[in-house]
């Protein structure tokens, strides 16, 4: 494989957009403009980008409660996302879903999910649809180390192998299920070793490294598109923020986040890796573009109208 220069710029843009989006949501949440629960993805960008750079609009993903990065990685409009997170009528889900339920079927995003382990079964269905309709598409389930212990995830991996589905399970192991360490709650060293029990290949990669994720995913996607069935990829990575906004993170070591930001920032690693091909100024320009985009998204979201009272009772059924 060779990622083209354009691909690399696009990968960087997606990662940077996620980072900027999340850093800004963190600020806006603190200011009190954003209601509800928000779980930020900052720090994990290489996973979303490395996976989604292998996908087209015909491929599907199912996400988690920590879903903003997956949305952006898959191409969901950030203006709609930001408005949704602010609970506005112009949001992706018209203000009815919020941060945990952003979905955009047009771009193949089957939804963030408020239920840990909710996504893997859905992905079996998306993969089944691709298989029966012979679209050549694949479906990807993002889930965390927490969901790696859910029965739904096990059942889905078993079913995917049994039905030989073009499904890919991406375990984003950020070391914590809420405030409980994976070291305690996951019974094995590497989640990827569980793949063997379900008869599929499994691999663990450095989730801070876009290229490592991209390569593992490319192999899995090729296998899936060619009828080789499902795969499991574990990306070991770290989150820059708490489980949710407002989490004091006192379960983490005192300088843990500081050290991660300094040593394991996927954006910095990406810049270093492409330095010989892409001038820093070019990436700086993307940074500036992205900042403007997010500024604009926030401004529009704040100015956008709330849902109308009558929206309360619409969209429950198609016809009732």
């Amino acid at each position: 494989m060779a990622l083209s220069r354009e691909d690399l710029l696009e990968a960087y843009r997606r990662m940077k957009t996620i980072r900027e989006f999340e850093e800004r949501v963190h600020v806006e949440f603190a200011k009190g403009g954003i209601p509800g629960f928000v779980h930020l993805y900052a720090g994990e960008e290489a996973s979303a980008a490395g996976v989604c750079m292998n996908l087209t609009d015909d491929d599907k993903i199912a996400s988690t409660h920590r879903g903003h990065g997956h949305c952006i990685g898959k191409g969901v409009d950030v203006h709609g996302m930001m408005a949704e997170i602010f609970g506005k009528r112009t949001g992706t889900c018209r203000g009815k879903g919020g941060s945990m339920h952003i979905a955009d079927l047009d771009t193949g995003m089957l939804g963030a999910n408020g239920i840990v382990g909710g996504g893997p079964p859905l992905v079996c269905g998306a993969a089944l649809a691709a298989k029966l309709k012979r679209t050549g598409g694949v479906a990807v389930a993002f889930f965390g180390d927490g969901a790696s212990n859910q029965g739904t995830t096990f059942e889905a991996m078993n079913l995917a192998t049994v039905w030989r589905l073009p499904a890919i399970f991406v375990a984003e192991n950020n070391g914590y299920a809420e405030a409980t360490a994976a070291k305690f709650s996951v019974s094995c060293e590497d989640i990827s070793t569980r793949a063997a029990g379900f008869g599929m290949p499994g691999v663990t990669v450095d989730g801070h490294d876009f290229f490592a994720v991209y390569e593992a995913m490319r192999e899995a996607v090729d296998r899936a598109r060619n009828g080789g069935g499902p795969s499991l990829i574990e990306a070991k990575l770290d989150r820059f923020f708490g489980h949710f906004e407002g989490d004091n993170q006192n379960y983490r070591a005192p300088d843990e986040v500081k050290r991660i930001r300094a040593e394991k920032d996927c954006l910095q690693r990406f810049r270093a890796r492409v330095a010989s091909d892409i001038a820093a100024a070019e990436l700086d320009a993307i940074d500036a573009d992205v900042r403007k985009l997010i500024d604009d998204a926030v401004a529009q979201a704040i100015a956008a109208p709330d849902p109308l009272p009558e929206d309360l009772t619409t969209d429950v059924y198609i016809r009732y």
Binding site: L110, P121, V123, G125
Partner: peptide
Amino acid sequence: AFVGAAVGAAAC
């Protein structure tokens, strides 16, 4: 798994 798969397939 299969009820969830049905939901996912329906959405697709």
